[in-house]
Simulated assay, not measured.
Amino acid sequence: MTPEIRRVLPADRDLLRQVHEVFEAVRAAETPEHPPVPEDRYSGMLEHPPPDSEFRCYAAVEDGRVLGQHWVYLPQKENAHYAELDLAVDPGRRRRGIGTALLEHLLRLAREERRSEVVVTVWAAVEGGPSRPDAGARFLERHGFTAALTEIGRTLRIGADTAAEERLWDENIGAASDYDLVSWIGRCPEQYVEGLGRIDSQIFAEIPLGDVDLRPRTIDADFVRTREERAEAQGHTIIRTIAVHRATGEVAANTLVYAHAGEAHADQAITIVDPAHRGHRLGLLAKLANLRQLRAHDPGVTEVWTGNADTNANMVAINDQLGFRPVDARVSYRRLIEL
């Protein structure tokens, strides 16, 4: 029996509950070191997508039961050629064609939405880390996908002893004598909104993307504010530090951590340094300042998760200095679609 592929809407609470159960079953079976995701996160993602983007969820349903699902990220502006997917099948319902049905649905959707590049992500093992199954990667390769980008997932255990961080600060702060480090929690102060948008607009031009074709996007004040509103609506607290060049007032570096209400882990998001201001340890210092702020804001956070392309040598070196340790890899598999 072929399952029905049904679009899941925010009001479909029973389906969303089952979608959550499937994702948690997959996490427990394949990546148990990863923190669980609360059930309400899923409806929040559908109701509050990133600016200029859309999230959709489609479930494979049989006799009212969700057997698997895929989540599709669809940029609507600069990267309207692109679609990215997370696909999950209940571990107890595999080898019944459910994954194939979901993937075929995705490829039809991509053509309907005029998306010429489709990326599906899977987890893989890294040296010294826990084992990870490779069935997802082999499945994608059989369907014409090729590995395009590998990001190494890392975690930092936050302890009470901050001596190593203080030593790093003292050893490097002299290199940033022409800059001020400015930290805050929540919404960006008005005087920094334009500069924050300017430096964040450089992200896809500066970070390694392998063979994934994500193009630079314009982040203006409306984008910054919409992104903040989305975080607040989903219960995430923005913890941010920037470096400001004293002579020009330019935002020279930016780092961001998301803390989640009632959760013991936080997620390190982007860290970027303007190419014109590199060589002053700004990435390292901004992250050190932000870790201080995270501890002060939420002492209950014991772990920070992050991910970087395996070819991003500078950021990998910074994370190694801070004590982040590899756990696994998130591999983006890519397939081009003829439209």
Results as ranks from 00 to 15, higher is better:
Arg227Glu: 10
Leu109Pro: 10
Thr2Asp: 13
Glu112Gln: 13
Leu106Val: 15
Gly136Met: 01
Leu85Phe: 06
Val66Gly: 04
Leu339Trp: 13
Ala125Cys: 04
Ile207Lys: 00
Leu294Val: 00
Val301Ser: 04
Val193Ala: 05
Arg217Ser: 14
Gly97Asp: 05
Thr218Pro: 08
Arg281Asp: 08
Arg17Gly: 15
Lys77Arg: 15
Val119Ala: 06
His265Gly: 06
Pro51Leu: 01
Pro49Leu: 08
Val8Phe: 03
Val26Asp: 10
Gly159Trp: 10
Ile98Cys: 11
Leu339Ile: 15
Thr302Gln: 08
Arg142Asp: 03
Trp169Asp: 07
Asp200Met: 05
Leu156Tyr: 05
Pro275Gln: 09
Thr218Lys: 12
Glu151Ile: 10
Val119Asn: 00
Asp267His: 14
Ala163Asn: 07
Pro326Trp: 03
Tyr258Ile: 03
Val8Thr: 05
Ala243Arg: 00
Arg142Ile: 01
His34Ala: 12
Arg13Gln: 10
Gly44Ser: 01
Arg95Met: 02
Asp52Glu: 13
Asp161Cys: 06
Gly323Val: 07
Gly186Ile: 04
Val126Ile: 00
Ala233Asp: 03
Leu16Ser: 03
Arg334Ile: 10
Val182Asn: 00
Asp170Asn: 13
Ala309Gly: 01
Glu30Lys: 10
Val66Gln: 07
Ser332Asp: 09
Leu106Ser: 14
Glu47Thr: 11
Tyr192Arg: 02
